[in-house]
Design a protein around this nucleic acid. Structure first.
Lengths: 259, 259
DNA sequence: CGGAGGCTTGAACGCTCTCAAACGATGTGG
DNA sequence: CCACATCGTTTGAGAGCGTTCAAGCCTCCG
């Protein structure tokens, strides 16, 4: 199988598409966009022309409030699609910014719309992706509404582990998912615990906490040997312990987003 | 124009569809489902077979937590579609329950999928609805993460006014029987402000608050003559005042869900 | 009329915030 | 390569908002 990038690579089961659909998907034209750390790629309220796919780096969608604070709606990892929910919206409902140096594929909204509404198989794929996004948002709502800071942060760390692809340094992972067995190994934290470098203010703005309190909770986790911190990075030392804290309910596997 | 109900009536601009699409939409078969107050229509984790449209009454999607509390994800008004985001999901990610006596149209998921993926115009319509849902969720996330109880409640009351009275032809007037023209008047706050009958525990479970605190905040609003309460109903007395409290930003019209 | 469910109120506790100050890491120009 | 500025992180003290617990009240309805 040839090596594919961009939108095509976002769909795990893209290989099962009818040949014609697959070809169209592969051939969908895109521009590449490279953004330095902290650059604002889109502002809320701007006309929405495009759809993005993260190639490498991390970025996040955000909303600014009147008092100058911001709320991060979601953090996006390599291989994820940004703006699906706004395909049919004339203006961006939230802004987009680069958390690290980032490379994005940018697709024309109209051609994506055209492509996906033109084929049942592709439309189904599209709906799948939208569902997944919605599930993440639902989870976030429950967390914000009902869980304390400790649990929210533990959950967030695990979410990064999960969505970041089980493999390591941010952004270097291949677009396709890593085979399950390898992922599982890394996941169990057998020997090389995972390390991210994610600033506290991003955690705070995502989870609706203050930076100060994020720092305190991380110290608490450190004292329980759940994580360790060095420089400005976080290393997960006890994934199962974090799962306990986060209240990941093994009886509720059906909730799992990525199947 | 003939009088149409169910899924067809959910789409404001359905009349502009190509005739063939429109006809298919109108002819899409549905079952009717009548549920008494407080009945659980679906549980989380159950296989997802259907898509629902509220005919009359109010219902809500919810998630139960381990500690027995629940989180209401969203309240659904007459004319709204439930479960769009789960069209492509094998199991329900959240439960559905009737807040009042309720009548629903139930559509087979597969035939809806088939219909909507078969036509570009319909696929577009579908995406529009999904976008709308996502926008509401985003708004809720921001509120939960960043706003205090007073503001969240004011916002929620306005949301009910907006989603319930204003936009939907099928109408929330089901709650109280108000003719369309009066509802419109009421909405403008000319003389007879709108009255709902929504239990405190629903507000609490939606906004992530305790019942007790909801009661306190409502008293506060009452003391400021923003609302009045009688029996177990809430009447909006000063919509503009509530808008101030809710921080509805008139400069951000593009954020408006219903255009 | 009596019971049940929903609403209200008070008191005390606790989680998280704000403010303020110091520490540490990173990066830049001399 | 060091000095310094800047940004991110840490820690403490005090205040505020929302929770829990507990009790009493009001309404609806049989």
């Amino acid at each position: 199988m040839g090596y594919q990038t961009g939108l095509y690579a976002c769909f795990e089961d893209a290989d099962t598409l009818p040949p014609l659909d697959r070809q169209q998907l592969v051939e969908l034209s895109s521009e590449r966009l490279v953004c330095p750390k902290d650059e604002i790629i889109l502002r809320e309220g701007e006309p929405a022309h495009g759809l993005f796919v993260v190639e490498r780096g991390l970025c996040y969608t955000q909303r600014f409030l009147e008092d100058g604070t911001r709320q991060i709606i979601d953090v996006h990892f390599p291989g994820e699609i940004i703006g699906l929910d706004q395909l049919s919206q004339p203006l961006h409902l939230s802004g987009l910014a680069a958390m690290t140096d980032t490379a994005l594929f940018m697709y024309n909204k109209l051609s994506v719309m055209h492509l996906f509404t033109g084929s049942p198989a592709l439309a189904r794929l599209l709906l799948n992706m939208v569902s997944r996004g919605q599930a993440i948002m639902t989870e976030r709502i429950v967390g914000l509404a009902r869980h304390g800071a400790l649990r929210r942060i533990a959950h967030f760390l695990l979410e990064i582990l999960h969505r970041g692809g089980y493999a390591n340094p941010i952004g270097v992972r291949a677009l396709r998912k890593i085979p399950a067995d390898q992922a599982d190994q890394a996941n169990r934290g057998l020997q090389s615990p995972l390390t991210f470098r994610i600033p506290h203010n991003v955690i705070a703005d995502t989870l609706g906490l203050s930076i100060v309190h994020v720092s305190r909770v991380l110290r608490q986790l450190r004292e329980q040997d759940m994580i360790s911190t060095q420089n400005q990075g976080i290393t997960l030392m006890d994934v199962d312990g974090l799962r306990d804290i986060a209240g990941v309910d093994p009886a509720a596997r059906w909730r799992t987003v990525a199947g």
